[in-house]
Design a protein around this nucleic acid. Structure first.
Lengths: 352, 352
DNA sequence: CTGAAAGCGCTTACAG
DNA sequence: CTGAAAGCGCTTACAG
């Protein structure tokens, strides 16, 4: 009686009650241990295995993942926390991570922070319940100190920052060097007034790294830094790039090149530049960052820094899985390679 | 002794052992029932509640979601199964669904089928273990019959097909009508040779619906259907659009307009058309489908069918949550609205 | 309002 | 190789 009422209380809504391991065991005339062994690939006599598998098929049995997780102390789920999944760079990364995680038997759950500090705090502190075995997190608002302060011990891998002696495992490209290469490329074309779009306040942020690289490249090229050419962007969407470009074209002395801190900024900027009669690259050369699919097909196609995204996905997963298995090691950093892909938006040098 | 060994066997790797409800109860000097009540917002005396909350904070207690799920018979997780998350349309939809699901207390997990029939089969049959409470699924390879044949009872909502008397709940726009509107728009511009890119074989597919609408519009406009202008696309990526456009430009009598079954096909096609010297829309007008962000900023900006994506996300979730609560109702269909957004790619009529 | 206890469906140490 | 039983950490019907 107690059995019955408890069972119905926790059965799935609507009265469907699926078979349990116990049911399978009864049907096959073996113990649940043996059923468990069959399912988990332990060694079981051929005849017994056969009988169990038959019973499983007959009953349409599927393991209850919650019970397994409770027992095993893990869930097989990893979180990917980004500001917004429909940002093309994150969408491309998500695709890779989802596929690679699956090869390791993990499922990816998406958490969108919207760049909100409170949500980022929540992510860094284990996401409320122990739902995930680990988190891959691309911070926007949080800096290194915020993350160092976390009390949660859920394995965490940071994406997109390059902070030495970091508070957690992380994988990134060398953003300073990449930004320097992008800017140097524009300088090598003979451009003198090279603008930057995408500057942000957060310390230790990717934006800050790229700004540093940009400034270094100007200096190395012997070009003056004109602060009026350095434009912030609240977000990294096309709209923000379009607005920043509008500002630049309204300067008394507009730039002859612009390094955008990501491709969507660049795409948005190019739209505005086109509307205002700029020829790209003749009047103004443009370089982006990320090498998203859109940029390759755009007219003009976009010169960009192409990070090894598969390498980022693979490294992030590797670090995370390592840490899930062994907590004690010191935080590790993986630096992934990148390439400058020169395309039409900076393709035909002027004044060289 | 037994307690100890079992406990350490199921503790998280690395020896971290987090506090349980029992620990909190002991600390607060109450029963676990009371702790549970505090956590789940049941009525508890103010002083007791205070003590419990204090104990929770002290121990850094977080509920074990697996145990809760096991007991409740649900997981609070929904799957979104699409071919690839980095397809912009799916990325935009995923963003909306993730955000809206969160408002209802659900988390979204991503499953990528790659359009593979086997993986789609897997999705339709509950995804192996009972990991999710429900599935939102955008089928590529499976048709209505395949889905009708499913034996699994996991609540399922289909996306993107418009099949009356369907085998499961589903939400879609009226693809036939939308495609007809897109094609009729091109005809109204005076275009006579209107091509289509994106035809596929699968019965009952979205592609088939759009093809039907395209053909109907030609007929209504009194235009002949030239089968050589109807181009298949294996996938709906930019690359496929680019290839299809190359084929069209090589015809003896190339088209003067093209209706692409999605925006990425259109974006890819426009790139090829540009390379081959076509002026858009003067020589050739282009219409897409989906209204992704890319198309709005492209040069030329892309005329497209704009489905109410928020409506799709909201309806899919509503249907799914309803079904999670009540299994017995007949399959329902929700048809969401759309709009034709005329932009530059078909903006300046020629020969009218 | 609160407590003691059963049970969700697994996995696994312990025996045999 | 296989079985009987404990226990993972919750929720909840049943008493009080």
């Amino acid at each position: 009686m107690a059995r019955t009422s408890a069972s119905s209380a926790s059965a799935p809504p609507g009265g469907r009650r699926s078979a349990s391991m116990k049911d399978v065991a009864a049907r096959a005339g073996v113990s649940v241990k043996t059923v468990s062994n069959v399912i988990n690939g332990a060694s079981v006599g051929a005849a017994t295995r056969e009988r169990v598998q038959h019973a499983i098929a007959e009953l349409g049995y599927r393991p209850n993942i919650s019970a397994r997780n409770l027992r095993r102390g893990r869930t097989g789920i990893l979180a990917l926390a980004v500001s917004e999944v429909d940002v093309p760079y994150f969408a491309e990364l998500a695709r890779l991570i989802v596929d690679m995680a699956e090869e390791h038997g993990y499922t990816i759950l998406i958490d969108q922070t919207g760049g909100d500090p409170k949500r980022e705090q929540y992510v860094v502190n284990g996401m409320g319940t122990r739902l995930v075995d680990g988190v891959i997190f691309s911070p926007v608002a949080m800096d290194r100190l915020d993350i160092a302060r976390r009390r949660d011990t859920t394995p965490l891998v940071l994406l997109g920052e390059r902070v030495s002696a970091g508070p957690a495992d992380h994988v990134a490209i060398d953003n300073v060097a990449a930004a320097r290469a992008a800017t140097a490329h524009l300088a090598s074309l003979g451009r003198r007034r090279i603008a930057a779009i995408g500057v942000q306040d957060h310390d230790q942020s990717t934006a800050r790294m790229r700004e540093t690289g940009y400034r270094a490249a100007l200096e190395e090229a012997g070009l003056p830094v004109d602060e009026s050419l350095i434009v912030p962007a609240r977000q990294y969407h096309r709209r923000d790039g379009a607005e920043a470009a509008a500002y630049l074209t309204e300067l008394e002395e507009p730039p002859d090149a612009v390094f955008c801190f990501n491709d969507t900024l660049a795409l948005g900027a190019m739209r505005t530049l086109y509307d205002r009669g700029y020829r790209i690259p003749d009047d103004l050369a443009v370089v982006g960052f990320d090498d998203i699919d859109d940029g390759r097909y755009n007219v003009p196609s976009l010169t960009t820094i192409s990070p090894d995204k598969a390498g980022i996905a693979r490294s992030a997963l590797r670090l995370l899985l390592d840490r899930i298995e062994a907590v004690d090691s010191a935080p590790r950093e993986v630096t992934v390679s990148y390439e400058l892909r020169v395309r039409e938006s900076s393709g035909s040098p002027r004044r060289v």
